[in-house]
Design a protein around this nucleic acid. Structure first.
Lengths: 225, 225
DNA sequence: TACAAAAGATAGTAATACTATCACACATGA
DNA sequence: TCATGTGTGATAGTATTACTATCTTTTGTA
């Protein structure tokens, strides 16, 4: 899989960038180092000026790739959902049982990302931390409707749709598949954040992945009581 | 209840403000009008300068009440969770059945707030929209640990703890009560936002409150399969 | 070698999120 | 009645941010 992946790149909707960052050395550096910086200092403190200094370039050059730092965040989150869908397709290939496919899918969405797959210039461990702490800010803005029209959230929606399909295979009468899947994705991210910062809002049990465990229980009991 | 409430005020942890906004006319105006403005223009575009102009005062005067606009957001969200807990206690009083209490609690958390209770200078309908669209930003910052230490999130944690207790009454073996409750609260808010802006991430069925319905199903099936 | 496209260098702007200082109105209490 | 202090208003100032504009230099390629 790693070999195959090394020949593949995740496509991000072209509306979120001005110039494809995959198309040049500078573009890839912008992406790689922005992930480092946002992970270190948080999205609020991150600026194109700081990034420029880090990569030995300038603000102006970065603006040729991304219209704003918000668009860069859209790029990073879109890439992440694209990557997730990619992993999902491979993970579920040739598994006949729908229940087993759903189990694997929930695992993928809720397990902690602990290994950098190393098939790109993107560090997925750091990126997953960014998604946990910052991805809500990608859509909680006044520009959400416009950006949605432009397709900025297609990757997320495709992922949700794909898993909803599995749920409908298991129980065609279940009325809220999209709601359930997006609850799991957002929920798992929030619970990981709570575990680190607001532990009284969650239940982390030493030595087990409670979050993955909880959401598996929740999904199966909800769709097939 | 309305009469009783008119004599009561929601207490917010005093660390989030410099001077209690309930203690003066100006303070109450700051809170009332900031809710209007944030609801209208979003938290990003909202500034103390604009608020000052709205209430015929100045930036400097507002800064005497709140250290920053972020602290004001903490105040508003804390007030909201305090108000929720208050309503919860009244709603659940004298209901012997734990299952019925849980049902009512989930309803309170997930139903849309459509009426301004009119017992304070705070418009709860607008505030609930702010909570839906902006409250994640109250804790998704690098200052979360410090602010948590100061007690900025106590209201939220108390509410979660209170509902968790009911769950434990129903099923003492359930291992993730806090996780379930915070998943419901955050989930319901996100789903309302999705319904308005990213409808393919949810399932809104015309003429019924799908969100409340879904989370009730989810909770009961999860704790008592 | 010629030429365009990409990147770098530099400068500038309006707005933001504060901070600092001073003046003044007004209520209280001695 | 005067002194005092508190709360508020008015004004100004700062560092930083999120861009934009323009010009020059480098680099790949035909």
């Amino acid at each position: 899989m790693v070999e195959l992946l090394s020949k593949v790149s995740i496509r991000v909707n072209e509306k979120v960038y001005l110039k494809d960052p995959e198309s040049s050395e500078l573009g890839r550096k912008i992406v790689t180092r922005s992930i480092d910086l946002i992970d270190e200092m948080g999205f609020e403190s991150f600026t194109f000026r700081k990034l420029g200094m880090e990569i030995g370039s300038t603000e102006a050059s970065i603006y040729r790739y991304f219209e704003s730092k918000h668009r860069l965040l859209l790029y990073l989150t879109s890439w992440y959902w694209g990557w997730m869908e990619y992993r999902l397709v491979f993970t579920l290939a040739n598994i006949p049982s729908a229940r087993e496919r759903l189990r694997l899918a929930i695992g993928l969405l809720t397990d902690q990302v602990t290994e950098d797959s190393d098939f790109s210039h993107i560090n997925e461990v750091k990126l997953s931390r960014i998604v946990i702490a910052e991805s809500s800010k990608a859509y909680l803005t006044r520009e959400v409707d416009q950006e949605n029209k432009e397709g900025a959230f297609l990757g997320y929606k495709k992922l949700v749709a794909r898993i909803s399909t599995i749920i409908m295979e298991i129980n065609p009468d279940f009325r809220y598949p999209h709601m359930l899947v997006s609850t799991v994705i957002e929920g798992a991210n929030h619970q990981r954040y709570f575990a680190d910062h607001l532990p009284r809002l969650t239940n982390v049990i030493e030595g087990e992945d409670s979050i993955a465990e909880f959401y598996k229980q929740m999904v199966f009991n909800t769709i097939n009581p």
